[in-house]
Write a protein that binds this DNA or RNA. Structure first.
Lengths: 115, 115
DNA sequence: TAACTATATAACTATTTACTTATATATGCA
DNA sequence: TGCATATATAAGTAAATAGTTATATAGTTA
């Protein structure tokens, strides 16, 4: 863990821009507690798979999330080792819980199919 | 001061989108401690006056800043009564201080001309 | 190996964004 | 009143964004 470094305000703005999208912000809140795979996001957001992948890429390019392949699935989780984790944590913490979206999936049985 | 209300994640994303711009984010950090007028922002950011006004409008539309006319000048300050103030405060607090930009103005004498 | 599932990427398009220039509005002062 | 200064708004434009469809890549299984 590095000591507190000086943050560049331009880079901070770029991070906030990545967070400034409802889909990506909800993704981050969802994976705050547990990992999710791409197909779950597709179900939750009712969006096309490429669109979901592109959002995840922006989050990954910003180093905000971790990607881990397990067999044919790729799971995403919050990158707690990110230089930006302390910056975004108070934001994510203040967001309303989104777990009901996952519970919804379990009701549908959609969560089981891929995880 | 209202009791903690449930925040909508979509509205939160919109607020973050407003913050997700270097100019606007720096503006917020600058007025965290003291008010600034439009002509100061024009000097600081070396941007056209309409461009500055348009950024300020976005911040005002999001209810993040207060506007107060004093004679021919309009001064802007952080809106501490905003519903979103508790949300953005931890963000702004983490940003590097920008006061050197105002000190720069004072050196130029540009700060005196309008304030 | 071939067929299937999950995910990523490429190319394209419609919308949004941040700026520009031109103009309108508001205030101060001679 | 008329002119100057400060700010806001309108209209136009280039670039960025979020989605689309089509295709590529990677792993799984028969």
């Amino acid at each position: 863990m590095p000591t507190k470094t000086v943050m560049d305000i331009g880079k901070s703005a770029k991070i906030l821009k990545v967070l400034g999208d409802k889909t990506r912000l909800t993704m981050l809140k969802l994976i705050e507690e547990q990992t999710c795979c791409v197909c779950e996001f597709v179900e939750i957001f009712q969006m096309s798979q490429p669109s979901i992948s592109q959002h995840l890429r922006k989050l990954r390019d910003a180093d905000l999330i971790n990607e881990e392949r397990k067999g044919q699935w790729v799971f995403y989780s919050l990158n707690q080792d990110s230089e930006w984790y302390p910056f975004i944590l108070p934001i994510i913490d203040q967001l309303p819980n989104q777990q009901e979206k996952l519970i919804e999936l379990e009701k549908n049985g959609t969560r089981i199919t891929c995880c």
